[in-house]
Structures are given as C-alpha cells and as structure tokens.
C-alpha cells in the first residue's frame, strides 16, 4: 500500500516535470514576446523589463531559474499586472472555478445516475426513449450554443436568474447547468448501458431467486456494480469540466481561473500561462490518483498496486 502510493507520487512528479519542460519549450518557441503588441517602448525600458524577467539570459539559464522557482512553488509574476504573482492569480480564480466545477460534477453525477438507471429499468419504453433523446441532444449541442440559449430565455426573457456575473448562489445556477450538460449526457448514457449490463448478470438472478423485492435488488445488487464504469471515467470527466470552464466562464463573465487563463493566452503573459498550465496539470494528475484510490476502495476485487499505473 505505502510502496504503491510512494511509487505513484514519484511518477506524478515525473509527469509534472515533463509537462513543465514541454510548456517551457513551447512558450519559448512561439515567435514574439509579451511586449510585442504594446506600443513601441523605449529601448532602455524594454531592456530593463527583459532583465527583470530574466528574458535576456540564455535559454538554459532561464530554464534552470524557472525550475528552481517551481520547486519552491513559486510560479513567478504576471507580466501584464506586474504587482500580482501567479500564485495569487490562481488563489483568486481557482475557488470560483472549483465551486462551478463541483456543482457541475454533482449535477452530472446525481442526475446522470438517476436518469441512466431510470432509462435502463424502463428499457425500450417511453422513459428510456425520452432520456436517450435528451442524452443525444446533450452530446451534440456544444456548450457555447447552449449557454447563450439559457441566458436568453431563463436569464432575460423569463428573467428567472441572473444572465451573467458572479455574486450569490443564483449566479452559479445557469453556468453550472451549461457546464454540466455534456458530462450529464455522458454519465446518463454510460449508467444506462452499465445498469443494463449488470441486470443481465447471473448474480442478479441469484438475488431475485432469494426472493428479494425489486427495489432491494436494485439498491443492493445492481447499483453498486453498475457504478464502477462511472468512477473510471471521473478523471476524463473532471478534465472535460475544466476545459469547459474556459468557455463557460468567458460567456458568463465569471472571474474564475478559466476565463483568466484564456485572456492571458491572448496577452502572451508567459508566466501566467505556464503557471496555470502546470497548476491545471498537477490538479488533473492528482484527481486521477484520487479516482484510482476511490476505485480500489469501492471495488473489493482490486487491490492497490495490482492495477498498474497506466
């Protein structure tokens, strides 16, 4: 157990180092620097700025400085708003994104499991068809189409919820729904096929042969076994929500990390782009690790370390 966790942590650090290096190389290979788009700066000012951000040093030196700071959890300073460190920017934006993400995940999981199970239990009947049509819609409509649609009707025409912005809980509802839509459709579809699959298993027949009522067969025998595929896609699901947040936060003007990240890419704010990329990577790697731990915890057949790292 301990050996496995240590091994996983070392592997995670290795992946992070590779990602950090790749990000560094990519950033440096893009033509132009953060100051190109500004109106022409005086020669001397530009030189001072370059020196301040170590941009005048040879690349290997820049790389070493970057890695050293990274090891100290120092992601450097933003170039556009030079008083703010990247760490501060993340600390400001991430909780907002996290709240949105968690709400979206909860909607996708809870509703998806309920809808998927309902469809399977009413297989080839009206509820099944209705839910599957919804799921196909959810998969085919991109969030940047759905979001303005929600804004127009629920936010503006019927005036039920705020159109955009960030403040109290009501502001989080529309963006959470928009963000949850695709994952909800995916979870619903997966849960439906998983329940159908488990329903046909021999051990379900055994449970029925014990004379257990259908409700108990579902809660104690079908559900627990049908949920495993959902746990395995949690990693990709979180990644999907994270990338989805770039678009959704922009559309709803939510001051989260996703919106900030997109803006800084346009501004070529190197330290912020690199810092947030590495932060996101670390976050996803950690989530995958947690998902694996949860999996071994709920599935008695899987022992830690037996399921090797991908």
């Amino acid at each position: 157990m301990l050996r496995y966790v240590v091994k996983r942590i070392l592997l995670m650090l290795l992946s992070l180092w590779v990602i950090a290096t790749l990000t560094f190389v990519l950033m440096k290979s893009i033509p132009g620097d953060p100051f190109t788009s500004e109106k022409k700066l005086p020669e001397q000012t530009l030189k001072n700025l370059m020196a301040h951000y170590h941009l005048d040093k040879p690349l290997p030196t820049q790389y070493l400085i970057y890695m050293k700071n990274l090891a100290n959890f120092d992601l450097g300073f933003s170039i556009k708003s030079s008083t703010r460190s990247v760490n501060e920017i993340i600390a400001d934006g991430f909780p907002v994104s996290a709240q949105l993400g968690i709400q979206a995940i909860l909607i996708a999981l809870i509703l998806g499991i309920i809808m998927g199970s309902t469809a399977a239990l009413r297989h080839n009947r009206l509820p099944d068809y209705a839910i599957m049509v919804l799921a196909v819609i959810g998969i085919s409509i991109p969030s940047f189409v759905l979001a303005p649609f929600l804004q127009k009707y629920i936010g503006w025409q019927w005036d039920l919820l705020p159109i955009a912005g960030w403040g109290d809980f009501t502001h989080t509802i529309l963006p959470s729904i928009a963000l949850a839509f695709l994952p909800l459709a995916l979870v619903t579809r997966l849960m439906r096929s998983s329940v159908l699959d488990v329903q046909g298993q021999d051990y379900i027949r055994t449970a029925q042969a014990k004379g257990l009522p259908p409700v108990r067969v579902f809660t104690h025998h079908i559900l627990r076994n049908a949920i495993f595929p959902i746990i395995t896609i949690m990693g990709p699901l979180v990644a999907g929500i994270l990338t989805g947040s770039f678009v959704i936060e922009k559309i709803f003007s939510i001051p989260g990390l996703g919106k900030r990240f997109v803006e800084d890419i346009f501004n070529r704010d190197y330290p912020v782009i690199m810092g947030v990329t590495i932060f996101y990577s670390a976050f996803l790697i950690l989530m995958n690790f947690i998902v694996d731990l949860v999996y071994t915890w709920v599935d008695p057949r899987v022992k830690l370390g037996e399921r090797e790292v991908e």
Binding site: Y203, R205, T206, A209, N225, P300, R301
Partner: peptide, 13 residues
Amino acid sequence: IFQDPMTSLNPTM
C-alpha cells in the same frame, strides 16, 4: 443453485 458459481455471486458483497 445455478450452473456457474463464478458468476452467480455478487462480486461486491
């Protein structure tokens, strides 16, 4: 009692 004891018991209970 069913034929296949390998699949007739719930693996998670």
